[in-house]
């Protein structure tokens, strides 16, 4: 199976392969993170909180998926993503950096998103969205963090090819 991830910085190919990824897509080079759909040559992931804006952006053919910026779930957005066969991305790199007291609450919010996406049949991908080497995770670790958050779900179906 092909494992890929998304990061905000360029990860050396040798490191990416050692930690189990075939490729780590770089924001700004292989993929764009945008707040609204706009004409670019790269695949776009829309990030935000407002459900109306996210649903509008999902209709664009250049947008491949959505990230909930404050981990606040909107079921309408997930439904639309499922209908349009777009991906709900769940970033966990920041989750592994949260302080212990906040971790439970954050895991709860991510779990809601994952449970909704699973229930509504939306394609879901767990990614690190690492901003530095310290927040990068190996495929092994991504699977275990996914299992920690998505307790009763099929985590193996949520890691793999991102695009």
């Amino acid at each position: 199976m092909r494992y890929t991830d998304i990061a905000y910085f360029g990860v050396r190919d040798s490191l990416a392969k050692r930690i189990g990824y075939d490729k780590i897509y770089v924001v700004g080079k292989d993929i764009e993170i945008v707040s609204r759909a706009c004409p670019t040559s790269l695949p776009q992931i829309v990030i935000g909180n407002d459900p109306g804006t996210l649903i509008g952006a999902l209709k664009s053919p250049d947008v491949i998926g959505v990230i909930f910026e404050s981990d606040e779930l909107s079921k309408n957005v997930v439904e639309k993503a499922s209908e349009l066969k777009k991906t709900v991305f769940v970033p966990v790199g920041g989750f592994t950096k949260t302080v212990v007291e906040e971790r439970g609450r954050r895991a709860g919010r991510l779990r809601k998103i994952m449970n909704s996406a699973h229930a509504l049949g939306a394609r879901m991908r767990i990614v690190t969205m690492a901003d530095s080497e310290s927040s990068l995770l190996s495929v092994n670790q991504l699977r275990e963090v996914g299992r920690l958050i998505f307790e009763n779900g099929d985590v193996d179906g949520t890691i793999g090819e991102v695009l």
Partner: peptide, 15 residues
Amino acid sequence: KRINGRDLGFYTIQT
């Protein structure tokens, strides 16, 4: 993410 005052990350390569 931090050991002895240094920011870092650990990657588990294989078990």
